[in-house]
Amino acid sequence: MAEPILEVRDITKLFGSVIALSKVSTKVYRGEVTCLLGDNGAGKSTLIKILSGVFQPTEGTCHFNGEIVTLRSPREARAMGIATVYQELSLLPLMPIWRNFFLGAEPEKGSALLRRFDIEFAKRTVREELRKMGIEIRDPDQPVGSMSGGERQSIAISRAVYFGAKVLILDEPTAALGVKQAGMVLRYVAQAKARDLGVIFISHNPQHAYTVGDRFFILKHGKVLGSWTKKELSLEDMIRNMSGVDELEALSRELEQIAAGRQERNNGMENES
């Protein structure tokens, strides 16, 4: 196995006397989707905020490409190639796709007083970049607000990829979406992986995570409950690990149905690839 692109070792984060994370270690590899799972309050958000430079760890180290790094701000993390797509996406609904895509990093042409936004380049690039992700847009002038939730996610993802992200952190990208829309976003996650990015996929939906994930990593009460590769972990085990033992009884009936569904899906995936 190659070097991990991003690694955290023994990260601890305290907020006053509250232990948000305790000695958490994990590795993220290029061309893989690493799923970060756990219930609300497990410490997922704290960990991604450390990885994206919003918080600094109380103890422990971050390693990027094998070197120890200190991420002091989101800007620094972004400059290094760690892009975070939050649920709220940072897209402006009333603005056209091309204006959104390049917002804050507008390509320019011309000099001095005639220095201007290179609109032709922006429109062409947006079309090309989205096509690479498998989306055909007919009009780059379409306002983002008129697009579906899945499409908006995919714009945010392709923007991160275009601006040189090496690690892509997706914070619950499928949480607010319906089944079809979520499926669409999972495809784009697979696309980002195929383009050799290290993807960190945060979710509390085990089905979504299991569909795209290569590596799973479960947090509970700020501690690592375990980490597995896809081969080592079945969907049943994953759900058991994510939820408490108490809830197992209630889940067991549901599990059988899901397992049957997975069998079909696995067959489907083999056929596709």
């Binding site: 709220e88 402006l92 204006r99 804050g104 936004f117």
Partner: peptide
């Protein structure tokens, strides 16, 4: 009109009016 439609600054004007937090997040 030229500044608003054709320059980086114009793009920023639309963005800060649309959602100032989103604009700030992407570096405006």
């Amino acid at each position: 009109t030229w500044v608003l439609q054709r320059t980086r600054y114009g793009n920023w004007i639309f963005a800060v009016g649309g959602d100032v937090n989103s604009a700030r997040n992407v570096g405006v």
